[in-house]
């Protein structure tokens, strides 16, 4: 990973963040019909990240898999639904995932 790769990655990542804050965010705010999108974007995007992390075969291949990660997510879902503290959600999900892998 050479220095120009690092700089190129940094420019693209930072540029998107700054554009969101200074251009697209205010653009939504000026349009009442779109303003609510701003509140709901994190829910939709984070759900996408969760889906990718738990069901994609790997970060590069293009396939879906249901494995121990899905069990961990389900356990996390129950814990969140029961309003468990974050630390309980995380420990329960990791333990369930590890347990399924140890058994399976």
């Amino acid at each position: 990973m050479s220095w120009w790769v690092i700089l190129a990655l940094a420019a693209g990542v930072s540029g998107q963040r700054l554009a969101g804050m200074f251009w697209a965010g205010p653009f939504l705010t000026r349009r009442p019909a779109l303003a609510r999108l701003g509140d709901l974007l994190p829910m939709a995007v984070i759900a996408g990240v969760i889906a990718q992390l738990c069901f994609a075969s790997s970060s590069t291949s293009t396939g879906l898999t249901v494995d121990a990660r899905a069990v961990g997510l389900a356990v996390a879902g129950v814990a969140v639904w029961r309003r468990a503290p974050l630390i309980v959600v995380v420990v329960a999900a990791a333990a369930a995932t590890a347990l399924v892998r140890a058994v399976g």
């Binding site: 829910m43 995007v45 121990a68 974050l86 995380v90 892998r101």
Partner: peptide, 30 residues
């Protein structure tokens, strides 16, 4: 089970918004 830590954290973070209909719809659709 360390790879379960990040998705579980993310789920907990959006958890309270999932209790409102719009938040749940956005997450399920996303």
């Amino acid at each position: 089970g360390l790879d379960a830590v990040f998705p579980a954290t993310l789920l907990a973070i959006i958890g309270s918004a999932l209790r409102a209909r719009d938040g749940l719809t956005a997450a399920l659709a996303g």
